[in-house]
Computed example of a mutant assay.
Amino acid sequence: MWAPDQRGYNLSDKLRGIRPYTIPVLAADVIGLLDAAGRAQAHLISHDWGAIVS
């Protein structure tokens, strides 16, 4: 089980502008985590802004 921070939250990098925080970019971050873990699919449980991304 993972509990990653979205970019800009907690200890993750705070990027400038709004483009790095668009839904397609944030969703690509999640896909990147799945790819790095070698997973083709996963169950997502989310809340707040994470729910929008998932």
Rank of each mutant, 00 (worst) to 15 (best):
M1T: 04
M1Y: 13
M1S: 05
M1V: 04
W2S: 12
W2Q: 14
W2K: 12
A3W: 13
A3C: 09
P4N: 02
P4T: 04
D5A: 02
D5T: 06
D5N: 03
Q6R: 04
Q6I: 02
G8H: 09
G8V: 05
G8S: 08
Y9A: 06
Y9P: 03
N10P: 10
L11G: 13
L11A: 15
L11Q: 15
S12R: 01
S12F: 07
S12W: 09
S12Y: 02
S12D: 10
D13V: 14
D13M: 14
K14F: 15
R16F: 12
R16Q: 15
G17A: 07
I18S: 15
I18D: 15
R19W: 15
R19V: 14
R19M: 14
P20D: 02
P20M: 02
Y21W: 07
Y21L: 05
T22P: 09
T22M: 14
T22Q: 14
T22K: 14
T22A: 13
I23Q: 12
P24T: 11
V25Y: 13
V25M: 14
L26G: 07
L26T: 05
A27T: 06
A27N: 09
A28V: 06
A28L: 11
A28R: 06
A28F: 12
D29K: 02
D29W: 01
D29C: 01
V30H: 05
V30L: 01
I31F: 13
I31R: 14
I31Q: 13
I31W: 14
I31T: 13
I31N: 15
I31S: 08
G32E: 01
G32Q: 03
G32A: 03
G32M: 00
G32Y: 05
L33S: 05
L33Q: 08
L34M: 01
L34G: 08
L34A: 02
L34I: 06
D35L: 07
D35H: 01
D35E: 07
A36C: 09
A36P: 09
A36L: 04
A37Y: 12
A37P: 00
R39K: 11
R39C: 10
R39M: 09
A40G: 11
Q41N: 13
Q41F: 10
Q41W: 10
Q41A: 11
Q41P: 11
A42C: 05
H43I: 07
L44P: 09
L44T: 03
L44R: 08
I45H: 04
I45L: 08
S46A: 04
S46D: 07
S46M: 06
H47M: 00
H47G: 00
D48Q: 12
D48F: 12
D48V: 03
G50I: 02
A51M: 10
A51I: 00
A51C: 01
I52Y: 06
I52T: 06
I52C: 02
V53T: 03
V53F: 03
V53E: 00
V53Q: 00
S54A: 04
S54H: 04
S54C: 09
S54L: 03
